[in-house]
Design a protein around this nucleic acid. Sequence first.
DNA 1: CTCTTTGCAAAGACTTTGCATCCAA
DNA 2: TTGGATGCAAAGTCTTTGCAAAGAG
Lengths: 151, 151
Amino acid sequence: MAGEEIGPRTPEQIFDTIRTSGGRVTVSLRTLVDVLIEDEERHLTADELIAEVDLRAPGIAASTTYRLLQRLEELDVVEHIHTGSAAAMYQLRHHGHAHLVCHECGSITDIPEETFATLAATLDRTYRFAIEPRHAALLGRCSNCTPERGS
Amino acid sequence: MAGEEIGPRTPEQIFDTIRTSGGRVTVSLRTLVDVLIEDEERHLTADELIAEVDLRAPGIAASTTYRLLQRLEELDVVEHIHTGSAAAMYQLRHHGHAHLVCHECGSITDIPEETFATLAATLDRTYRFAIEPRHAALLGRCSNCTPERGS
DNA sequence: CTCTTTGCAAAGACTTTGCATCCAA
DNA sequence: TTGGATGCAAAGTCTTTGCAAAGAG
């Protein structure tokens, strides 16, 4: 776990990755990559990315953005996170943090992957199962949505 | 966490719960409850439950089973688990175990909720977030799908 | 020029909903 | 009898796909 260093990703590095893989750097790709980098902290879903891309470069079809996300995922540039809602979230893969999602208010909290170290070790030992903590958010209730509880 | 004793659930107990809430015990309800109890270990999705119900009582509409699942969930009889695929899994709530889902082969492993005790304590302390380990499966790779690894 | 990418519209997977009919209590 | 439950078909949400036209290198 952890230690999966992907390194920082500048737009140019990502474009090179695309070109190296035989892909072409198009306006839609540039726009999507910009959004992914600039709005890194916003936990955007595909739908929201599509909206943001269309805002910056009107006319780009949703299917195009979906296709680009797929490709970027194959190239290990981005990854999607299941959040318990129908729509998945996307983040740059080098970000490397996992998530806590409150199913009451929908709030999302970033947590370092190391938080899972002990659990990962236990699951590995007991079930020989290698968890990927980033791939699915942990669901539960955040402090605002938990009633009774003294300070 | 844990300690959420819901108690054993026989069909009759469930039917009483339904009646008490103003509901009626119909053939579709009986059939669904039977399937839920008998196929407890099979980790069925709504789709699979629908198929199984239709097998035992031909003609029951999918929408009916979806509606019954919703109602049973409101009554805390069943709960759904997000597994990283589009379709959610359903289980009787008293079962109280969490899941490990291999995104390679799809295998599902049951694990006791207590496995999360330490992590839950940490998250509660650090983020005041109360995880619900059963609500979302942990994703990763099972031993069969993990290459290199001695014995 | 060639091969990838795009837009558009249609299809797909999963789930919900409206409504007239039907049935449990 | 009388509200809740059901079947059917349509709608909804999120995502994928086919195909001809457009575009990157």
